[in-house]
Design a binder for these strands. Structure first.
Lengths: 298, 298
DNA sequence: TCGTTGGTGAAGCATCTCTGAACTATTCTC
DNA sequence: GAGAATAGTTCAGAGATGCTTCACCAACGA
């Protein structure tokens, strides 16, 4: 194997800055150097790789599609370096460190709310910051190194650079207002669903269509409790993760399981890890083991 | 998150060189630089991380045990950079590239010999280099970036930075000379086994001991065919992966399955991948799917 | 057409990193 | 234990690298 090119962290920072910002000047500003420095830095990166990374498009430059692997590499290395920097920080200060946790709403509230509260109380030495978002953004934040652990819906394909640990199954089921009797999918609806564009919404409508259910949507909300209440009030039917549907009290009729949904804990697959992360994941798996049985049995 | 330290590939090269070589002078020589440069380079790395990585031990320096994560990080980043360099090479030359494959003997000969030959014939554009070693060394070579794919025994724990794909089950069974009748473990032996120190040997003796079998070893060899022949000649009993035991012809009596052994394909979990690698793994999984059934059914 | 915007090149300066040599501390050898 | 050999560090200087400022070019918009 030939000698490796002497790439630097800064060059990778330049690359992702350019990829993320609309204009190079903005990117330069964001990394705190002059536009010229950025230009030269990128040129140097291209020179060392021996490959052109950008196409000219008028007076601006766009990352070539076949150069996307380099960008992904840059992101991964930057994230790993961030982990290393955190490790160094922990070594210097002796602190247990900071834990940036991302969760989808159901995980943060329904499934692991108790564990979270307990962990916070038990590990006051850890600065725990929670961020609640849908699965997609969470995974991107994790890849970019802005989060340390993420609890989200299992991605269909394994994602390079990430490692997932199964936590529990929380299937999405169809729910009807209180007085409804079971019947064929063709009679289901109208619907109260997550908004168009959400990942879960997409999966739900796809599955309903497959079952031959008519999809007339009369209301939309990102908030599961809003959907639940609307069903209770008889506004329509909905499809929700079972745990969220059953969270409150009230008369929802579960019609049938619609699709399988597995929650996992995801971390960057690096060599420098915070021990706290493993503790937290262990707490989650333990909790899931004891609580998911009933839901798995129904 | 604070600004990241501007680490360089070269600094990581220095670090692993120092970790791998007996003396710093030798390490310096290996990376092609003066001892002084190496010393200063490491010092700079420590300064940028803000952490001491080495303990003084007389006039030499040893990597501190709690600095091992940094070394692992360095190795991972170097391996990823190697992948990136290969990608750049492929982009420049337009070639399909070089594929450095590692396999344990059973995989190379018994399980996937045909697939290998077929792949070589079909993809003459790929420079395929095969290296046969035990699982442990193969995985280390993979981590160090000296191999691109490895077919080996599934490691007990997932290894950071690697991703495995299950291929097939090839259990280890106990075999006796032709005329032996089934009997209790206490009467088994004497044994003809893999040499002391090998990973499989360790697992085998551990399991035999658990079953209460006496472990008197009368011959040892790294070569499964040698062991097989010795059993045929009545020298003793052996424990072998089933596929290897049955590879030739002859009168071996399978006494019982001893331990589970799963073969997997392992790759670095990076963002820059050779498409050829996926093709090869696909060929292996396809082959395993069609051939492992009979062995799984017995 | 002219002004504006996005990006690149050149000169100058600061910093970094290498080499070679001098230097210190430890270990070996007798 | 003296003296030599060894392991690693420090220092000074040469050369490379990277950044900023300023000048420049090309594309876009009015």
């Amino acid at each position: 194997m030939g000698a490796l090119p002497d790439l630097t962290i800064r060059q990778f920072e330049y690359l992702v800055a350019v990829a993320d910002a609309d204009t190079w000047a903005l990117a330069a500003d964001r990394v705190g150097v002059s536009g010229s420095a950025l230009s030269q830095g990128i040129a140097e990166l291209e020179r060392r790789l021996g490959v052109d990374l950008f196409d000219r498009d008028g007076r601006r430059r766009r990352l070539r599609t076949d150069a996307i692997p380099v960008l992904a590499h840059a992101r991964q290395v930057l994230a790993l370096t961030g982990d290393l920097a955190d490790w160094a920080e922990r070594m210097r200060t002796g602190s247990a460190g900071r834990l940036r946790l991302g969760m989808i709403d159901a995980a943060a509230i329904v499934h692991f709310g108790d564990q979270l509260r307990r962990f916070r109380a038990a590990r006051t030495d850890v600065e725990l910051r929670l961020r609640v978002e849908p699965s997609g953004p969470l995974l991107e934040l994790l890849i970019a190194g802005d989060l340390d652990v993420v609890v989200c819906v299992a991605p269909p394909e394994p994602i390079p650079g990430l490692r997932t640990t199964p936590l529990l199954i929380d299937d999405v089921a169809v729910y009807a207002p209180g007085k409804t009797r079971p019947s064929s999918p063709a009679t289901w609806g109208p619907w109260v669903l997550f908004p168009e564009g959400s990942h879960t919404r997409g999966a739900i409508t796809r599955e309903l269509r497959r079952l031959g259910a008519p999809i007339e949507v009369v209301a939309e909300s990102h908030q599961p409790d809003v959907l639940r209440e609307m069903v209770r009030l008889g506004t329509g039917w909905t499809a929700l993760p079972r745990a969220q549907a059953e969270h409150g009290t009230g008369n929802l009729v579960e019609v049938q399981t619609l699709l399988r949904r597995e929650l996992v804990a995801a971390v960057r697959d690096g060599t420098v890890r915070q021990p706290v992360v493993d503790d937290l994941i262990a707490a989650f798996t333990d909790a899931a083991k004891s609580t998911s049985r009933p839901s798995a049995l129904r």
